[in-house]
Design a protein around this nucleic acid. Structure first.
Lengths: 352, 352
DNA sequence: GCAAAAATCCAAAGCGCTTTGAAAGGCTAC
DNA sequence: GTAGCCTTTCAAAGCGCTTTGGATTTTTGC
């Protein structure tokens, strides 16, 4: 009825016959207000549908309750589809804590400037760094800006310390390669992500170490490094299967290009597993997932290294919120091991 | 050197020997300031790296330069992957105009409340409505809140008027079904999206009208309606191919389930096109795209109805920004026609 | 040359919140 | 009863911007 004008602290406190100070403190849980008063205040606030203005609060406190995610469109002018799942996880955590996501698209080379601006403007309370390169200038800048941040992944830069959460990509790929080697494969291809990205770099290391341990030389013709999309897997596979000595197994950086790999094989009349083995890194992308959540009865399609990127989003978000709450706490980092699941796409190599 | 404390309007105006008013107006392009003064002000602002505080500006003007996107996690607890591409388009438009995205995850049933809060808090200057249902309560609320918004899609609710941008889904599916009918198919399946969504509802209408025109009864056994993910296409296809009278062609709501359809066929030793025709709605998802941007030489894989969801994002964002600039302008709406492209997955039905 | 109009610029009042520093009220202890 | 100590509440000063309603200066018109 009388919700004509939106009620603010002033009118609320006048209604209650209290000062703005007391009302503000009552609502923000300060100890120096009598519980009885607090109850009165809270009741009135709810009844009058009072909500503090975020911009006013932000101006007064310097906190925006916004978390920055600056993402770059990758080569194909797209948002990395893995990002959607990451953000789904992170967003859930933020929502519970009363934070929102501020999303900005910007090419990598502008991100340093953007972080500076976001920090100076106090537009966000913290940021998540996506897709760290092997050596990444964003880290140093963020540290010097004093803006809380957590890196999803790592970079190998010495010196500056920072919070991060990563999957043990090197070990995962080492293990997968070893699995194929143990099956008897000798010609193993790596359809990797962009190796400027640190995660891809590490995956390659794992792969190479395994080959080395088996006394097998790395063949550049079996190495690919691109954005992890479906057509890439297709193209790479078609190329390699044309070689004189084609691979008998393929290690793929994501289920997305792995789909391309299977499509290529299918075009060639080959069957994954029987003819060519495939192991993919499975980020548990929700729109591709099959039989993972569903009780585990079904045999998954791909043999895979598996780690939910959505769970990673949750965890990174939580780490960041913790840092924001407590900026002086020691830096944290977490390394997750990927699961290894055996599906239908691996078998010993076919005899020639 | 003296960048100790961040420079604000006050210090900047003192440095210049001007009032805050003049400096503010000079920077915001008001006409009543001499061009010479304006130049001086702008120069000084840049030199001192002055940036107006967003929260202060927001408090003073009531504008946040934030666009709200409230998205619900769909049944599979995921962000719809189509959304990522939409936001990639929209984000580009926003970035150019100096807006950011405020992203919030929330189940559909909470969105009405959330919109009310966002409006009351003046946290966003406008919102994009995603995934409109056939009858959607969000529209009415937004209109009564006076918060500028544009709907991606439409709802069929009478009465309340609103801005929207949609693809002509009914016509696209009508045309695709007709194409299959003309090829001689009589058993055509529809692997649709969730029919609570208006777009899916309209697609089904197009499909049914085409069948009706051809004098063919709709067979419920050939109708599916679920979240558009890969395993869904797989499962639906496996089920239908087990029928006594299996379909000879499938109309699929997205390339994602279409991948599942091909996987199912491949498992059955059937080839898309030769054995079973497939037409998919292709949103030009960037991570699946093949040979679309690349000059058009290659024959696309799927025969498809095609409309870039990324371009839709761009357009919707622009429409929203226009509305925010000029809230009293007449409502706009746009209906896009999908392209129809012939790929490798359609052929006349195989003779029995 | 002078009144009127136009062009510039300014002081101060918000916007709605948090927080400092102090006052008032209520209680205990002697 | 009153000094002293919590407890509870408050007035007022920001936070950094925009904007209203003048004031001042310059230009224009005749």
């Amino acid at each position: 009825m009388n919700a004509r004008k939106t009620v603010n602290l002033k009118t609320l406190s006048e209604t209650l016959g209290l000062s703005q100070t007391t009302v503000s403190r009552a609502l923000n849980g300060f100890p120096e207000v009598a519980e009885k008063t607090r109850a009165r205040v809270i009741e009135a606030a709810q009844r009058l549908n009072y909500r503090p203005s975020p911009s006013a609060a932000s101006l007064a406190t310097g906190k925006s309750r916004l978390i920055g995610h600056v993402v770059s469109l990758s080569e194909h002018i797209m948002i990395n589809p893995h990002f959607a799942d990451f953000i789904a996880g992170a967003g859930e955590t933020y929502a519970q804590a009363g934070y929102d996501i501020l999303l900005r698209l910007a090419p990598l080379e502008e991100q340093v400037r953007i972080y500076s601006n976001l920090a100076q403007d106090q537009r966000v309370d913290g940021v998540v760094v996506h897709g760290p390169q092997t050596s990444d200038s964003r880290i140093g800048i963020l540290n010097s800006l004093g803006l809380p941040f957590v890196v999803h992944g790592r970079c190998d830069e010495e010196g500056s310390d920072y919070s991060w959460m990563d999957v043990n990509n090197r070990r995962a790929f080492h293990r997968a390669a070893k699995f194929l080697l143990d099956l008897g494969h000798r010609r193993i291809a790596l359809v990797n992500g962009l190796e400027a990205m640190n995660f891809a770099h590490r995956r390659r290391q794992g792969y190479e170490i395994a080959l080395e341990e088996a006394g097998i030389a790395v063949d550049p013709a079996l190495l690919h490094s691109e954005d992890m999309v479906e057509p890439y897997g297709y193209r790479a596979t078609r190329e390699m299967m044309d070689l004189d000595d084609p691979p008998t197994a393929v290690l793929v950086a994501s289920v997305l290009p792995a789909l391309g790999v299977t499509r290529a094989l299918s075009d060639l009349g080959l069957r994954p597993g029987d003819d060519v083995s495939i192991i993919a890194f499975d980020d548990c992308l929700s729109f591709l997932q099959s039989g993972y959540r569903g009780g585990g009865r079904e045999i998954p399609y791909f043999t895979a290294m598996r780690s939910s990127i959505r769970e990673a989003g949750k965890r990174v978000a939580q780490m960041l919120l913790d840092r924001i709450e407590n900026p002086d706490a020691p830096l944290e980092s977490e390394l997750w091991e990927a699961d290894f699941v055996i599906g239908q796409t691996t078998a010993p190599p076919r005899r020639r």
